[in-house]
């Protein structure tokens, strides 16, 4: 049996509702001296990072800096070599997969679908962590799928094969899947890659709305520094596996730092004043 009560009681439980703003309450995400990597080689080392509930944070940095590795550690797919990761106050290493999936939604990477799959069927996959193994989706699950479809504005695409959609539309479908999961923390790994400007902005505005209106904690890996600076109040800059800077965009994207980390002319990036 899957216990959905913990999600339904989000509003009343102090863990779920803006706990990060009260001093003393545990943050949504907490890395404590985390080092992790593959085959004995650390990709990220000594990461200390705390993200409060209802925060919206962009993880930026050059290719290979360890951004995706950090997300994998947080999602429990890669156990840290040292240190620990806490998700809503609980050590990720002590949570099983369904428990993590009810706390943390990850927007899937664009993947080829092996079979014809309608948009609403893809979105419904977000309910798997809540579904009863035997009885299948219940009324609450169907309502959550419908709500996610409306929230992301996918109503006009309902009934279509997801494989026939444009990349931008498909990314929106995957975002709706994660929204239907109704987890208090949302992770995204380069959600705007390959998308045209219109879809990039649409995704960013949706993320802002999910964060500000629903109180979802958002942690997104982004490559586009302008988008990150424009839509995220807090940036975390990763460089060769360590946090090089953490703060508001104007501070993190200071010209000398952009030059040293990305090795480009800082004039290429427009940081807000």
């Amino acid at each position: 049996m899957i216990d959905t009560s913990e999600v339904d009681s989000r509003q009343s439980d102090p863990r779920w509702s803006g706990g990060g703003r009260d001093s003393g309450a545990s943050p949504a995400v907490e890395f404590g001296s985390v080092s992790a990597g593959y085959r004995g080689r650390d990709v990220v080392s000594d990461i200390d990072l705390s993200i409060g509930a209802e925060e919206r944070v962009a993880l930026i940095g050059p290719n290979g800096a360890g951004k995706s590795t950090l997300l994998r550690v947080l999602a429990g797919l890669l156990p840290p070599r040292t240190g620990e990761v806490r998700l809503l106050g609980q050590n990720v290493a002590e949570l099983d997969r369904p428990a993590i999936a009810r706390r943390l939604a990850v927007v899937p990477q664009l993947a080829a679908l092996p079979f014809a799959t309608r948009v609403e069927e893809v979105v419904a996959l977000g309910r798997l962590p809540h579904e009863d193994a035997l009885r299948g989706p219940r009324e609450a699950d169907r309502a959550a799928v419908a709500a996610a479809i409306d929230r992301v504005g996918l109503r006009p695409l309902v009934g279509r094969d997801a494989r026939e959609l444009s990349l931008g539309e498909r990314q929106l479908v995957f975002l709706a899947l994660a929204v239907a999961q109704q987890a208090p923390v949302l992770l995204l790994d380069e959600p705007t890659v390959h998308l045209d400007l219109g879809h990039q902005v649409q995704i960013m505005e949706l993320l802002r709305d999910l964060n500000e209106r629903d109180g979802t904690t958002i942690l997104a890996v982004l490559h586009d520094l302008s988008l990150a600076a424009h839509f995220f109040p807090r940036l975390v800059l990763l460089d060769v596996g360590r946090i090089a800077s953490d703060g508001p965009p104007a501070e993190v994207l200071a010209p000398h730092r952009v030059r040293s980390v990305f090795r480009v002319d800082p004039g290429l990036i427009r940081a807000p004043a």
């Binding site: 369904p98 999936a101 939604a105 899937p108 990477q109």
Partner: peptide, 14 residues
């Protein structure tokens, strides 16, 4: 059903 979008997404779906 969880495996439909690949093993990594299956893991994220619990």
């Amino acid at each position: 059903n969880g495996f439909l979008l690949g093993e990594e997404t299956a893991a994220h779906l619990g």
